[in-house]
Design a binder for these strands. Structure first.
Length: 392
DNA sequence: TCGGCTCACACATTTGAACGGA
DNA sequence: ATCCGTTCAAATGTGTGAGCCG
């Protein structure tokens, strides 16, 4: 088992629990359920796109990462309780498949499944607030077809169909962690079903992987004068920036001074008209996320602000894409004012690999306007911005 | 003969050490 | 001495395609 940063005792208990899981992967009736927990699949649209043509995942002897990566956002955990996040991948049926005539079909009986390997998220165990604050990414999980794999990768059989599953285990000693009463939550997303292959069978899948996986950029066709996506639509505010030019910094248009940190790198505030959250997190370079809403319901609620865990869609609030250059689903500047719906509003990754939008502002967008940052009634700082750069 | 697998390869991103300037 | 930003090489992650194997 890939057990990440678990302590020896915790590892032992997880392994003990996993034995229970392996014994009966479906009916864990003796365990307590975790009510109120909700899990959202990151990049669901992308997963759906792959799923529509039957997702294939390469497996190699050395281990291969999944693409799309399995990333989720979770709500409803107890912020102060510890949890362990882990994944397993189970056979979806007892068939072996083949790809012929541009479609998958059953070609025989499945080989013996290798069960019992789980991938424990390296942050485990961690507090609920930690898991809820950011995307939980399983991108480092690797798949292998080597039945003698010594690295803890998840072992699969080629040409077999699988379903990844997420398990959340309450790692609280007081509530009997490791015992049959351990509280747990299991969830699987139907769109993450895939067929393991040693080489791609469906050319459509190959193209989707090449188009969407940054590491496969080398196989994309149209090279040449490749400018930033945002820069391909010239406008008065935006400058053309070559691909290899460093993205202008967040602070070229927005400055937060003396703000109250919501988490290690998030600040939030609101004035009479809008709520603003500025997050400069994760990426060692210049990752950011900024959310702006006007009127009610705001993009964020005070409860979210105080915990640093904005969940706009959880409250039924709709955030909108502020800049027409930032497509729905990406990071960037969001406001309730324009009409383009954006779901979800915010992603922050602890792993430093989050997708960061191209920064759509030129260097000469310097802060011009300022308003107070507060959480609830408490004023704790100022945020400066230049309205025309933000499109306000 | 053929379907599936392995491996070397080119090309991409990511990571972290080394370095220099403030 | 420390911090911060930049540079660059090494490590790592990709799909491709030729060759191997059962």
């Amino acid at each position: 088992m890939a057990s990440g940063g678990l302590s020896t005792s915790a590892k032992g208990k997880v392994e003990q629990l996993c034995d229970h899981l392996s014994e009966d992967l479906v009916s864990l009736t003796s365990h307590q359920r975790m009510d109120g927990v909700q899990v959202y699949l990151h990049e669901k649209d992308l997963w759906t796109k792959f799923h529509s043509v039957m997702t294939e995942m390469i497996i190699t002897k050395a281990g291969r990462r999944m693409f799309p990566s399995y990333k989720i956002r979770v709500t409803g955990l107890n912020p102060k309780a510890k949890y362990i996040f882990l994944m397993d991948i189970i056979p979806i049926d007892s068939h072996r498949y083949k790809f012929a005539d541009n479609q998958w079909s059953v070609s025989g009986k499945a080989e013996v499944a290798i069960l019992g390997r789980l991938y424990v998220h390296p942050d485990s165990p961690a507090l609920g607030i930690h898991w809820m604050r950011q995307l939980v990414s399983f991108h480092k999980l690797k798949l292998t077809n080597n039945h003698l794999d010594p690295f803890g990768h998840i072992i699969l059989n080629s040409m077999h169909k699988y379903q990844p599953r997420l398990h959340i285990i309450k790692a609280d000693e007081k509530s009997g962690f490791g015992s049959p009463n351990t509280a747990f939550y299991t969830h699987s997303f139907p769109e993450t079903v895939f067929i393991a292959v040693t080489s791609y069978q469906n050319h459509t899948i190959t193209q989707l992987k090449i188009e969407n996986n940054p590491f496969a950029k080398g196989f994309r066709g149209n090279e040449g004068l490749d400018l930033h996506r945002l820069s391909q639509t010239p406008s008065k505010e935006y400058v053309l920036v070559p691909q290899n030019t460093t993205r202008p910094r967040m602070l070229s248009a927005v400055q937060v001074t003396n703000g109250l940190p919501l988490s290690e790198s998030c600040m939030a505030g609101r004035d009479a008209k809008r709520t603003v959250v500025f997050c400069s997190v994760m990426s060692p370079k210049d990752a950011f996320a900024l959310f702006i809403s006007a009127g009610e319901p705001p993009c964020l609620k005070d409860t979210d602000l105080s915990s640093g865990v904005p969940h706009p869609e959880q409250h039924g609030n709709i955030c909108h894409c502020l800049s027409p250059s930032v497509p729905s689903g990406s990071h960037g500047l969001y406001s309730t004012e324009p009409a383009t719906p954006l779901q979800p509003c915010m992603y922050i990754s602890s792993t430093g690999d989050s997708e960061v939008p191209d920064w759509p502002f030129s260097q000469d967008c310097l802060p011009q306007q300022t308003f107070s940052i507060s959480t609830g009634q408490r004023v704790c700082g100022n945020l400066s911005y230049r309205a025309d750069c933000l499109g306000l």
